[in-house]
């Protein structure tokens, strides 16, 4: 069985759980609990352990989607998962207090996945906060992490079509990078 582990990361309220539900073939395995950080995000529940979904490409090939907890106090899980991950979708909530800081924090934490060319960034809530724009995010990422070019798209995490575009770009990037590195 070939497996591709893809992480969905981002700060609380960015739409990770919604995105996995929109993509998964199976009912998402979802673990939520009372949000103890209501001063940060006004949301009754939040992800405190892994969300999990699957996409079956064939009987012998599967994508495993893991929604990684947004709160820093769960970062012990990040190091376990990132070793297995072929790619990562970073969701950034554009109307958060410091969306650029959020993006940079996740890029720093998951740098090795980014350097493998397997990162796609989705900007959520851009209807509420149009800036920073995708162009501005790309400039920031290119300046800080010149080794790989990260796609930055606006996305509604409820839109399966938009998430399929993001996942497709991630897969094409992984394939393309492997093609250029092949001996």
């Amino acid at each position: 069985m070939a497996e591709h582990v893809i992480l969905v990361v981002g700060p609380m309220g960015a739409g990770k759980t919604t995105a996995i539900s929109a993509l998964s073939d199976i009912d998402t395995i979802r673990t939520e609990a009372v949000n103890t950080e209501r001063d940060v995000v006004d949301k009754a529940t939040t992800t405190v352990a892994l969300d999990y979904g699957e996409i079956e490409l064939s009987p012998n090939e599967k994508i495993r989607l893991y929604g990684v907890p947004g709160q820093k106090r769960f970062d012990f899980m990040w190091s376990i998962l990132k070793q297995r991950a072929v790619g990562m979708i970073v969701l950034v909530k554009n109307d958060a207090e410091d969306p650029v800081g959020d993006l940079v924090a996740f890029f720093d934490e998951f740098r090795e996945i980014h350097e493998r060319g397997g990162v796609v960034v989705g900007i959520t809530h851009s209807d509420l906060a149009p800036r920073p724009t995708t162009y501005e995010y790309q400039q920031i990422v290119a300046e800080r992490y010149p080794s790989a070019l990260a796609p930055v798209f606006t996305v509604d995490p409820r839109s399966r079509d938009q998430l399929v575009v993001m996942l497709s770009v991630l897969a094409a990037n992984v394939d393309s990078r492997a093609m250029f590195l092949a001996r």
């Binding site: 989705g122 995708t134 162009y135 790309q138 290119a142 070019l149 990260a150 796609p151 930055v152 798209f153 606006t154 996305v155 839109s159 938009q162 575009v165 993001m166 497709s168 770009v169 094409a172 990037n173 394939d175 393309s176 093609m179």
Partner: peptide
């Protein structure tokens, strides 16, 4: 040097492949 915002642009599978390349 930068990815176009493909969630807002009509595109084909072939075009994604070329941009990733």
């Amino acid at each position: 040097q930068r990815w176009p915002n493909l969630t807002e642009i009509p595109h084909s599978t072939e075009e994604i492949r070329m941009i990733a390349t």
